[in-house]
């Protein structure tokens, strides 16, 4: 493969990914990491392709183990991502009402009055 084409593709993908991820909600950065982990699970495809094309016995053993571990990490990533997605509506339901119902519980700590304890000259 031409290295210039490869570099172009990688740069385009990074730019596309950065612009795509930036649009996301800042509170969902953790989900972005889980999404990256799930995408990293696609290494299973690379490992499988290496396994079905390998010729030597040593390579076969090595790539078979690589496929095993890649499948394990991909499944874990997908299950974590699915759990995060399933948790979102419930977390919103349980998190937002207490904040709106009792704003005074967090308000003093979050925004202290800066002029209150200011030393007078």
């Amino acid at each position: 493969m031409d290295p210039v084409i490869a570099l172009y593709t990688v740069l385009l993908a990074v730019a596309l990914g950065l612009s795509g991820f930036v649009r996301g909600d800042a509170r969902r950065r953790g989900r972005g990491l889980l999404l990256a982990a799930a995408l990293a699970g696609f290494m299973l495809v690379a490992a499988t392709s290496a396994l079905v094309n390998v010729t030597s016995i040593t390579g076969m053993i090595l790539t078979a183990l690589a496929v095993l571990f890649a499948a394990q990490s991909a499944t874990t990533a997908f299950s974590l991502l699915w759990r995060e997605v399933c948790c979102e509506p419930l977390a919103r339901k349980t998190l937002i009402p207490p904040e709106s119902a009792h704003p005074h519980t967090v308000a003093p700590a979050a925004s202290p009055n800066p002029t209150e304890h200011e030393p007078r000259p």
Binding site: V14, V22, G32, L33
Partner: peptide, 13 residues
């Protein structure tokens, strides 16, 4: 392309 996407996601994170 997929590797680039993962790198972008990690950088953004």
């Amino acid at each position: 392309a997929l590797g680039g996407l993962i790198v972008a996601g990690a950088v953004h994170y």
